[in-house]
């Protein structure tokens, strides 16, 4: 299992989502993608999108106004 971390700090919609999409395409099933973001919308739109795609997804606030979103590629 590989772990990839992408830096989406200071970036607004839809950049974090598109970056995640681009990165996931290069990854294998079972790999974990960690998205660092300080854009609150990302916790909605990335999580919603990942769920729709059937990936395992979760997020947590790691600092004030900063989140990490975890996506495990499922297919």
């Amino acid at each position: 299992m590989r772990q990839v971390r992408i830096d989406c700090m200071y970036e607004a919609c839809p950049i974090p989502l598109l970056k995640a999409l681009k990165e996931l395409e290069k990854m294998q099933v079972g790999d974990l993608l960690i998205i660092e973001s300080d854009h609150s919308c990302s916790t909605i739109n990335i999580v919603e999108w990942a769920k729709k795609q059937g990936h395992h997804v979760d997020y947590q606030e790691v600092g004030e106004g900063e989140w990490e979103i975890y996506i495990e590629k499922a297919r």
Partner: peptide
């Protein structure tokens, strides 16, 4: 929500 943050230019 204590989510205030100054955002820099990347």
């Amino acid at each position: 929500a204590s989510q205030f943050k100054f955002k820099k230019l990347k």
